[in-house]
Design a protein around this nucleic acid. Structure first.
Length: 669
RNA sequence: GCGCCCGUAGCUCAGUUGGAUAGAGCGUUUGGCUACGAACCAAAAGGUCGCACGUUCGAGUCGUGCCGGGCGCACCA
């Protein structure tokens, strides 16, 4: 509502400027003043106008004078209570607090368009299915899952994919470990994977974590052993042999583990797309024909890339240029006829956008923790479900992948854009993006705790078996939270305590990973990650719980109090906000009203941090309000009702902001 | 050599298209619970926003050049 008012005021200003100064103004900055006393919106437009008037007429005008002129024309806008000139020439707008407050009291959830929208396919998680997930993987999943929630809330249709590279080197390495190091048969491997698990350390993904590190060591000892890896990888890719069967079994089991781990964080997927199907259903062959036919890739008859199919770099390199050490053209098909990773990825993304002319077969895999059906691709038409929902056919894709993949990702998008059929389609596809994020490293303290001495931060390494496993961390968070809950709520049953503890644990971990911008490297520290105080998820939950407690203690639901509010006049509301603490109360309300704008900003930038930081700030402001106003002991009934409505607005926005972050509000804390 | 990211308080980090006095958490010092439960609040201390020019009425934000750290630039995936 504030943003539509802002747009209306801008239009008026543009009109006035046209009339008074004959200057064409397109758009100009609107900002929120640093303090409530200065107003609700500020336009520094007079500064720019002073400059333009001088340029046009040579006449030097004081910005304050111009602002005053503009202010004259802004009277009588519904929703605007007052216009002031401040500072050197700011045009400050004060909203009609009673009107806006009334709208907020009665407003519902985030406004969604309710219109059918284009489908964005978000891919995240995509962990190599060969070992337990660590905190770096969780950053990917939490980022992806949160972006999905925010996009959905702001009106997009989203399909969530998790790509399973079940035929890659990493799976091959663990297969090598089982076959060549441990000399195990498929049945023996099954016995390990399906044994009764009494401690976390016995679980299959943990077992493979250690084995994978051993295999790395095994290669180190004798490089010729890498031939074993190559042979194993080849057998896995080819399929229909004993080695491939072991690879298939292991990767499927690990995928199960990963899905369980992600369920603990309230993360789920619509579809798991597997590389084995992309291979066996010959996605590449189809894509190759399309790329050739459209001229996106060309065959090189000479030069350093002779015999390859390449995608030309932007801006045709001038003939006779000295070729640098690094050629800008991207090789898609090697001179020996095999396709590169980028080529395969292009094929896969053509499928995502429904442009390949081929489809997977699908079967339902499992129901997740919320009962949602998760599907997986299959190459076996016989086992495919006859009734499948339509996957793919997106208008854009969003890939959550670490920043190290920026170059290949740029190539994939470029190829897909070149294949877009029309300007309209290009516009849609162009929304596709590589959602790049930085890695999680270990702080010196964390590294030490894991047995590595270091001066500064240390990179995690699956190869070395060094990293903070996601389930270990969640176990510690669960245990710590349970201790806190039990200390405060001994009256609850253990099951209730555990449920709350887990909600808190999720909040702590998700917020910890979302409070950093995507491009910031996180130096993981146990003390910080395990904290429930200060700028943390539990802090935000706590303020939401406090808000709920007010109504519980009152013995009435917020909706019931809303009916009391109907009998309060606009004059009373304005008097309330004009009282001694009025500006503080209003700034909380006004801040709560900004969630929609923040969510929009967050969605456009694919940056969940904005919502996370906002939620924390709102919680902080609410806590101050909670501390300053003891609502239930308020003697003045109408003031009490108004305070309750302020609390309710903050409560609802907090809960909504938290839900965008994948965080629930516990019953008690 | 080319490209991308980072550099803001002791530490970890925010800072939306350039806007009013650069913020938060942690840590340090100090104060506040017979409760809408303190997982909280209040106060203090802490800054040449890496450096230097430039653009601008106005620069943490934009431009150029440096310094320091990380990562890419495969007929690997």
């Amino acid at each position: 509502m504030a943003s539509s008012l802002s747009a209306e005021i801008k239009q008026r200003v543009i009109g006035i400027v046209q009339d008074q100064y004959q200057i064409e103004l397109n758009d100009f900055a609107a900002e929120i003043p640093p303090r409530t006393e200065l107003g609700d919106l500020a336009f520094p437009v007079a500064f720019e106008l002073a400059k333009r008037i001088k340029a046009a007429t040579g006449e030097k005008k004081n910005p304050r004078e111009i602002a005053a002129k503009l202010a004259e024309g802004l009277s009588n806008i519904p929703g605007v209570a007052k216009v002031e000139i401040a500072g050197a020439g700011y045009l400050n707008i004060f909203f009609d607090r009673a009107q806006m407050f009334g709208q907020l009291v009665n407003s519902e959830r985030l406004a969604d368009s309710k219109q059918p929208t284009d489908k964005i396919i978000v891919e995240h998680t995509s962990i190599n299915p060969n070992k337990a997930a660590h905190i770096g993987h969780v950053r990917n999943s939490v980022l992806g899952d949160t972006v999905v929630r925010i996009l959905k809330a702001t009106g997009d249709t989203v399909e969530t994919h998790n790509y399973i590279d079940n035929t890659g080197v990493q799976v091959a390495d663990v297969v090598v470990g089982f076959i060549h190091l441990e000399k195990k048969s498929l049945d023996e491997i099954k016995a390990i994977a399906e044994r009764e698990v009494t401690s976390r350390a016995d679980s299959f993904d943990y077992y493979c974590w250690d084995l994978y590190a051993q295999v790395g060591q095994w290669y180190e000892e004798d490089k010729s052993r890498l031939e074993v890896r190559a042979k194993t990888l080849h057998e896995i890719e080819a399929g229909n042999n004993a080695t491939a069967e072991i690879g298939e079994y292991i990767s499927s089991k690990i995928v199960d583990c990963h899905l369980d781990t992600m369920s603990r964080l309230d993360i789920s997927y619509d579809l798991l797309a597997r590389e084995s199907e992309i291979l066996h259903l010959h996605f590449w062959a189809h894509a190759f024909e399309k790329l050739k036919a459209s001229g996106v890739i060309v065959f090189e008859n000479e030069g350093r890339n002779k015999g390859c199919w390449v995608m030309k770099a932007e801006g045709e390199a001038a003939e006779g240029d000295v070729e640098s050490e690094h050629d800008a053209d991207k090789i898609i098909v090697r001179s020996n006829g095999t396709v590169t990773y980028t080529g395969k990825d292009i094929a896969y993304h053509l499928w995502k956008l429904g442009k390949l002319g081929l489809d997977f077969h699908y079967r339902p895999l499992r129901h997740d923790h919320r009962g949602h059906e998760v599907w997986i691709t299959t190459g076996n038409e016989a086992e495919a479900a006859t009734t499948k929902t339509a996957f793919g056919n997106g208008t854009a894709f969003l890939n959550v992948i670490d920043v190290g993949q920026s170059y290949p990702q740029a190539n994939v998008k470029k190829a897909v854009m070149l294949l877009a059929a029309s300007e309209e389609e290009r516009a849609k596809v162009s929304r596709s993006a590589h959602l790049a994020y930085e890695k999680v490293t270990l702080s010196a303290d964390a590294a030490k705790e894991l047995g590595v001495d270091a001066e500064g931060a240390v990179s995690m390494s699956g190869r070395k078996g060094l990293g903070v496993k996601a389930d270990d961390l969640m176990d510690r968070l669960d245990a710590n939270a349970l201790q806190e809950v039990q200390a405060r709520h001994a009256e609850l049953s253990l099951a209730e305590q555990q449920k709350i503890a887990h909600q808190i644990a999720i909040a702590a971990l998700r917020y910890f990973l979302l409070k950093y911008t995507r491009t910031s490297i996180i130096a993981f520290d146990f003390k910080e990650a395990l904290s429930f105080d200060g700028e943390t998820g539990p802090y935000i939950q706590y303020s939401a719980v406090r808000a709920n407690n007010i109504f519980r203690k009152l013995g009435r639901k917020p909706e019931e109090v809303q009916s009391d509010f109907a009998s309060i006049s606009a004059e009373q509301v304005n008097a309330f906000f004009a009282s001694e603490s009025g500006n503080d109360l209003w700034s909380l309300v006004y801040f709560a009203a900004r969630l929609n704008d923040v969510a929009r900003l967050s969605a456009d930038a694919f940056e969940p941090t904005h919502v996370a930081k906002y939620a924390f700030q709102l919680a902080k402001q609410f806590n101050v309000f909670y501390h300053d106003h003891h609502i239930l002991s308020e003697a003045d009934e109408s003031r009490k009702t108004l305070l309750l409505m302020v609390a309710d607005i903050a409560r609802r926005k907090l809960e909504l902001a938290l839900s965008l972050l994948g965080i629930e509000v516990p019953e008690k804390m």
